[in-house]
């Protein structure tokens, strides 16, 4: 069975979390190495918007500034997210690998599968909902976004542990067209709402990370070896944070490309 790398990261600031994702993606582009699963969380809370979104359309910037919440544009499409009480996963797979279907829609279904499995293991009636969501009942518990760059697939997604609805609607603009489906707060759920207060404990979070890793292992037929970021990934993450995700030129303007790593090792 193939061995993948598992990275369990401590809670990180927004720009750092996004920079590590891009650094690991670059690492797989540079070297022939096995796929990687990274599990992480956010501290302090941060807002990310999709690659194709615009801060002025999606975010109440004044409120974010007042509450010290950074706003970062992702390298992936999809919607705006307030990352607060959640477990986030990123999976990195070479496009030539069997676990990276050529069809983008199919690959969402395949890679959201372990999230569905992990939730079902908790007794929840979870299901994949195309294009990129996982629902319990009719409410969204997990959303994912994918990019493919230089022969490597990166999919990252959230799993909501708790939702601070007041803060979410204070910091994000919720488009009227979306609200037609019902009250916004009823369209998003959380593990706390579904499982009770135990979802907030540190033990639960650690157990959830283990469940997700096991679900990936079973669904994608791989073993995990827990690893850490290489020195080069660490160094590059710091550079990407500084030279990309902390810059208005990236967060507000599509004219700069994500910085790319140096030559192959």
């Amino acid at each position: 069975m193939e061995t993948w790398r598992l990275i369990l990261d401590p809670p990180g600031r927004g720009a750092r979390n996004m920079a590590v994702d891009l650094a690991v993606l670059h690492s797989l582009v540079r070297t022939v190495c096995s796929p990687t699963l990274r599990l992480y969380s956010w501290n302090p809370p941060a807002v990310t918007i999709g690659y194709f979104q615009r801060i002025e359309e999606e975010v109440r910037e004044e409120e974010c500034r007042r509450e010290g919440v950074a706003v970062i544009r992702r390298v992936t499409g999809g919607g705006a997210v307030l990352h607060e009480h959640e477990l986030t996963y990123s999976v990195f797979i070479p496009l030539a690998h069997r676990a990276a279907p050529r069809s983008i829609r199919e690959s969402y279904e395949l890679l959201c599968g372990p999230i569905v499995d992990a939730l079902r293991g908790l007794g929840l009636d979870a299901r994949f909902s195309p294009i990129n969501d996982v629902l319990v009942g009719e409410a969204k518990l997990s959303g994912s976004a994918q990019t493919r760059r230089d022969g490597v697939l990166l999919q990252h997604g959230t799993l909501l542990i708790d939702v601070n609805a007041g803060r979410m609607f204070r910091l994000l603009n919720v488009a009227k067209q979306k609200s037609a489906k019902g009250e916004p707060q009823d369209r998003v759920s959380s593990l706390r709402r579904l499982l009770g207060e135990r979802a907030l404990s540190a033990d639960f979070a650690a157990g959830l990370a283990g469940r997700i890793a096991r679900a990936f292992s079973e669904r994608l037929d791989c073993d995990f070896e827990e690893g850490r970021l290489s020195a080069r990934e660490e160094e590059e993450a710091l550079r990407i944070e500084r030279e990309l995700f902390n810059l208005d030129a990236w967060n507000r303007d599509r004219s700069i490309r994500p910085v790319f790593a140096g030559p192959a090792d």
């Binding site: 194709f52 615009r54 359309e57 499409g77 999809g78 705006a80 983008i104 994918q146 990019t147 004219s255």
Partner: peptide, 16 residues
């Protein structure tokens, strides 16, 4: 012209 939203275009720079 600006095209924005929560969709996906691959590769992303194609939106330009």
């Amino acid at each position: 012209a600006r095209i924005s939203g929560d969709f996906f275009i691959h590769p992303e720079e194609g939106v330009l």
